[in-house]
Design a protein around this nucleic acid. Structure first.
Lengths: 209, 209
DNA sequence: GAAAATATCAAACATTTGTTTAAATAAAAG
DNA sequence: CTTTTATTTAAACAAATGTTTGATATTTTC
């Protein structure tokens, strides 16, 4: 399937609606209105509502895998530096595409669509095997001193970021940051998350230089 | 509103359906079938589908707050022990009520219902202020050495647990635990999560006895 | 045990849903 | 320019949705 600009535009509007109202809570009419196209165009372009969300997952997940792998194939940096870059990449991607990651989170729980499940499985597995490699490398170089549960560490990373995003407003309020501009606040939160998660990795892996 | 056994039974079936299919993805007919009552009984008992999910949040959140506070009012244990108990309580509650916590997670993202928002806000705030107190106590006693971002630590706790639950099957597969019985596996995962999160707290707070 | 209140039921209700149709318009190809 | 192909449209479609109705059964109250 060829994705034109029109496709991409509709997908972006649909993505926003799915993030705020859920897949089932979003009607094809909502999408058509938001994208300012005729109702029938959704079927015309994508075939069905279900194929539309499949297309969304396809387009969003395509680039991601390559981006992740590029980091690890860089030979000139230490394992811990690689992990730091992976963390920052992850945070950057989630903040850049908050809507999509919210959709992903709900679909992880609810979805039974096999196409979407395949995409998510692929994404997760590439991430975990990659990090596992880097961690093994660090152990071999005797830079990481502790044996760890990679998957739980990954849960902490993704979970911390997602919870922070979902509870953004609570965080803002609790830390008395209401006056800040939205953009500045997001940068602050990203920065704090980055530090927080890197230190998680550090202490859990028993990193020593 | 008085909650009878019949109410509770319908709510439990609805809760399961909401967890697997989402609120919008669950029809009143689905609930009636699952609870083995006539379709009209849902309206008769709860007034509407929306009031049903509000009742679910009400009943589930009522007990929680008291349980949390009981821990902290125990004077005979150290701050870090209190945190350990809070962590184990949290894990225990989530595993015991996986369906509800899944519903909560999606509603956190999607819901605009003011009644539900109020419940969740209350829940979150009571948790955070409580933990904040314990952490201050630990600092005053010079047992915690590091200044921390309480809310991010909380994000890591809740996020780790939720991600682990959502990705249970992945965890099982990746760690080659497929032969294990579901119950045994859950106990194992709880144990590992408990250790993992407690060590997070320990290192991030700079705990020294 | 009759009267009143509560619970259950199948059927019907008006909306909303995703999708399709067939006609009209615009763009591309020859 | 004309024909063919691709796009856009309003209207229609059947199925599904949350809710209500009015009749019937069951339980409670006195």
């Amino acid at each position: 399937m060829i994705i034109t600009e029109k496709h991409a535009h509709i997908l972006e509007k649909a993505e926003e609606l799915f993030a705020t109202n859920g897949y089932e809570g979003t009607t094809v009419r909502d999408i058509a209105n938001a994208a300012e196209v005729n109702l029938a165009m959704i079927s015309y372009y994508f075939g069905s509502k279900e194929k539309l969300i499949e297309a969304l997952f396809k387009i969003r997940m395509e680039g991601t895998k390559l981006k992740i792998e590029a980091v690890v194939n860089n030979e000139n940096i230490t394992p811990f530096q690689k992990l730091e870059i992976l963390v920052d990449n992850y945070i950057g991607r989630v903040f850049e595409r908050q809507s999509f990651y919210k959709v992903m989170l709900t679909e992880q729980m609810l979805n039974k669509n096999s196409v979407i499940l395949k995409f998510m499985r692929q994404y997760k597995m590439s991430y975990i095997t990659l990090i596992d490699e880097v961690i093994k490398e660090g152990h071999n170089l005797n830079q990481f001193k502790k044996e760890i549960d990679t998957m739980l560490l990954l849960c902490s990373m993704t979970g911390s970021v997602m919870q922070a995003i979902i509870g953004k407003d609570n965080y803002r309020e609790f830390n008395l940051l209401n006056k800040m501009k939205e953009n500045d606040f997001e940068e602050l939160l990203k920065e704090r998350l980055s530090k927080h998660i890197k230190s998680l990795f550090k202490v859990i892996l028993g990193y020593e230089q």
